[in-house]
């Protein structure tokens, strides 16, 4: 029904995933992962799964980002690959 919206969200989703994978700065990767999570929550809501989208937005965009940031503070900020 909303195929234009879904295609746009998918394009941004893939862009956020590629940025999270390729970024050298781990903090950038974490922020990009949070964006990925929030975009996938929007996709779930657009597809009609409101409960799943709610869970994804709360967990992926709220708590797991904070836990990743704390882990980066505890370790290093740049990847060495």
């Amino acid at each position: 029904m909303h195929w234009e919206l879904e295609v746009t969200l998918f394009i941004f989703l893939v862009a956020a995933a590629l940025l999270a994978l390729e970024s050298r700065n781990l903090l950038t990767a974490v922020v990009s992962l949070t964006v990925f999570s929030f975009l996938s929550a929007l996709l779930y809501v657009a597809m009609g799964a409101v409960d799943v989208g709610f869970t994804e937005a709360v967990v992926g965009g709220g708590v797991s980002g904070v836990l990743f940031v704390v882990t980066i503070f505890k370790t290093t900020r740049t990847c060495r690959d």
Binding site: D51, F54, T55, V58, G62, V63, V66
Partner: peptide, 17 residues
Amino acid sequence: SPGGGFQGGTMLAAAVI
């Protein structure tokens, strides 16, 4: 309505954090 114990608990934890 959408939501429940897990989602609400996670939001509560996010407010504390």
